[in-house]
Design a protein around this nucleic acid. Sequence first.
DNA 1: TCACTCGACTGGCTCAAGCCAGTAGTAGGC
DNA 2: GCCTACTACTGGCTTGAGCCAGTCGAGTGA
Lengths: 259, 259
Amino acid sequence: MTETDRDAGRPPASERLAAELRARIESGALAPGAKLPSERELAEQHGIARNTVRQAIRLLAESGLVVAEHGRGVFVRPAAAVIRLGNDRYSPKYRSTGLSPFLLECAKRGKAGRFEVLLVERTTPPPDVARRLRLSPTNKSVLRRENVFWADDDPIQRVTTWLPWSVAQGTTLLRDEVGHPFGIHGILEERGHTMARILDEVSARMPTTEERHNLRLPPGVPVLDVLHTSIDTSGEPYELTRFVMRADLSALRYDAPVE
Amino acid sequence: MTETDRDAGRPPASERLAAELRARIESGALAPGAKLPSERELAEQHGIARNTVRQAIRLLAESGLVVAEHGRGVFVRPAAAVIRLGNDRYSPKYRSTGLSPFLLECAKRGKAGRFEVLLVERTTPPPDVARRLRLSPTNKSVLRRENVFWADDDPIQRVTTWLPWSVAQGTTLLRDEVGHPFGIHGILEERGHTMARILDEVSARMPTTEERHNLRLPPGVPVLDVLHTSIDTSGEPYELTRFVMRADLSALRYDAPVE
DNA sequence: TCACTCGACTGGCTCAAGCCAGTAGTAGGC
DNA sequence: GCCTACTACTGGCTTGAGCCAGTCGAGTGA
């Protein structure tokens, strides 16, 4: 059968099915978490090939409306609680809680937050890191710490921190557990680095294959990529952290004076 | 032919081809802007079906590495100059240039920036806007202005500004051309609203169908969604702007004191 | 009661084929 | 010289078929 018979000028069948399903989701007829009919059912109901149904579902998955689970079905993506990270996350006012900002935020949303230290090593900084920390990119001038943050059973952020070796040397920053009630920044403060300013560079993109794997990202979910630099009272950058966060479960918030 | 014969344990053919092409792109063998072999060629060269090649290319397109152009070919996405918007975009220090921050940034990158006013209307604010501006969501309490910003021939940002009607009433804000050398914020300042703080709420997501169309977004490009609130010296929010920006050509930068 | 197996589902991947629609160069006609 | 028509490409969409791999519940055996 040629398309021309009855489809002239109309959008392709896969788009029509996608639009129909999208409407059912947005109207609430298919509630968050609900299971869509199976691909084979949809194909038969609409008189189209299963591959065409798959194309339609791919469109919905790409825009993040549904998630396919192998062997189980395709589900409307449940509205997710969002972890918000603000620029006040480094503010002294939260010191008293003894919680890191991420864990605090998880607690607010009723999620169980935890983190995992993946790696602590002395290494050579990549060029963009070296430039921002004003270090040589050619020798082992930094300590690199790599963490993953979890909320309930989802990995949310992959976090890499670089510290000038001159700052980290001889401190507990070299250990997995830094053992300070106020964390990394507590130690840095004792070493004379009080955070006066932050510089956050924010971008968004699709994840790399590796990030998709590490963060267990469903297809159609971008990541927020934040490069954070801490600057002390004398204007020196002394710490740099890169946050790669799944964008469907994360947001950022900047509350700042106009200078 | 069954897959088991020689593919046992290996990644699927589409992923293998995608990985091969990705490697050729990342090594520079396929430079930015270069044309990939046609789908039919790749299929023949690798002894796989054209549909499988299409699946591989889809994987690359989703992660933003290549762009397919109907009738022309598939091309390695050229590295794009990025427009950065900083939190200092509202700073008085840029007033003297007479350029809006977007146009200033375009000029820096050697791009021709311009904007277009799509709509100016008095309307009822959506609930999230009403809440942030502390207005009633049930009457026509706001002026809504809608703009598109272009760099060269690409639409980069879709910008919607909401102003309380009490603030906008009787000003040139109701006109398409506001006719003030310092733009909207120049007028607001004359009306007694000096920007003391900003509150930016940042998220990233895949575009809606409409946004994909409006911003002419290639597949695999997410958007940055920024909800900006201006707060005056007495702590009152008096202006709210939503920026929807294509993430492959945009970035954000926040430089702020720790309070 | 428990553990295991099996079968009937689910989506995931691939194939080979065909037609459609957009692009760009070329040969003809004026 | 210019425009038009043609043609040989390109990717886009659809079909219908088959096998693979994950899931989950029902039935079976110890």
